[in-house]
Every structure is written in C-alpha cells, then in structure tokens.
Amino acid sequence: MSGRGALLGWLLAGYAFLYAPIAFLVAFSFNDAKLVTAWAGFSWRWYGVLFADEALLRAAFLSLRIAVASATLATVVGTLCGVALARFGRFRGRGAFDAAVAAPLVLPEVITGLSLLLLFVAMDQAFGWPAGRGALTVTLAHASVSVAYVAVVVRARLAGMTPVLEEAAADLYAPPAEVFRRVTLPLLAPALASGWLLAFTLSLDDVVVASFTSGPGASTLPMVVFSMLRLGTTPELYALATLIVLAVAAILLLGLWLQRSNAAASGGQPIAGGAGRL
C-alpha cells in the first residue's frame, strides 16, 4: 500500500509544518543554556527565571484582566448588535448600522489604534474621562474591536435558527424580554461562548491597538514581550510561550467539550468558527 504510505507522509509533513516550530520552542524552553543554537541538557531553570520576573508576570496578569473584561463587554454589546441585525427586520439606519458594526473587521489595526488614541485624548480633555491612558483605555479599545467579531458569530447563529421557536414562546404568553431570556439566549449560548473566546484571544495577542491606547505602567504582555525581543530572545520567553500554548490548548479542549455536550443535549449541530482563531 505505497499510496497509503505516501498519504501518511504528506500528512506528517503537514503536521510538521504547522507544529514543528511550537515543538521546537517547547523543547528549548527546557534547554540548560542561554543560546538556542546548542542543547545543553534538560533544566527547569528558565521557568524559575520566568516566575522571578515580576515585570513580566505583572504584564501577564494585566493582559488576562484586560482580556476577560474586554471579552465580557464585547460579548454583551456584540450580542445586542447581532440580535438587532438578525431579528429586527428593516429599521431606519440599518444599512449604516450594519456597516458600522462590521467596520473593525476590515479596518487596519494601526488606524483603529490611532483613532481610538485620538478619541481617548479628546475625551480626557473634554470631560476628564477616561483619565489618562492605561488598563481602562486598552480594555475599552479591545472591546470596541471585538464587538464586530461577536456580532458576526451571534448573527450567523441566529440566521441559522428559525424564529419559530421564539414565536412559539410568545404564543405561550412569554413577553419579548422573557422570550429572549428563556429561549433566544439559551439557544445562543454556544455562539456566546465562541464569541467570548474569540474576543478573549484577540485581546490577549494584540500589540498594535494596545500600544496606541496604553499608558505608562500599563504594558500588556505582548507589549513587554515585544520590547524584550529587541534585546534578543531568551529561553525565559520560550518558557512563557510554552505556558501560554498549554493554557490555550486547555481552553480549546474545554470549548470543544462544551460545544459537544451542548450539541448532544439540544440535538443541534455544533457551531463552527469562533474558537478557530485560538
């Protein structure tokens, strides 16, 4: 079965192309030397260095906090946008609203970042909020970018869901708010989870928008890593990257498991997309 063998070879080559760099990075995070070029034996040394590096750890926790807050904010606002676009039919200004919601998907990040910086400066001068630049402005900036992604995911899910279930709920005496709470929202749950995860990762690996909208003392992890890179790579960064890869893999598995159990419970199809960017 040489055809089969060739296929297997191609498959392995594909996996190698995708994952060899990561495997390399993980391996060298355990290298007992400062240089990438030579293997000097196994060691936890760089993990020790990493956990002693307070600036890096502070940046990591700041990034996590910003990611959680901006993802949550974006999920709430994005869901409302998605519902409006999928369920409210035609309303005045719908076209403009649709374009406005989708704009961050196509705008270059540099322009988004610059415009948000200008806005925050102007707001600070006009009515003193948000005062200065820092974690709050980065959170708001990330949320404003992520809203578009959440709205797209929610809208797609709603488009695939016939309104007859919502009609049935209304027919059984549920006023609109209750229909949303008891029927629309539970059915949207997988999309909300996907949207939240998408927004979370977008925030976690963003450098550009954060660089524009952050201030002194509020450097996110990608910003710190980026500035460290200017002095050359160190195995400490590999250790950090290894931990992040582990965390992302865990979140991905959790997401998959949630989707699968949700699909099994509702008999519906699992929703693709969203977590794909992880």
Partner: peptide
C-alpha cells in the same frame, strides 16, 4: 407545523 419544541 414543525412542532417548535424548545430543544434545550
């Protein structure tokens, strides 16, 4: 016609 039972 489709029964519209709530799947969840």
């Amino acid at each position: 016609q489709s029964y519209a039972l709530f799947p969840h």
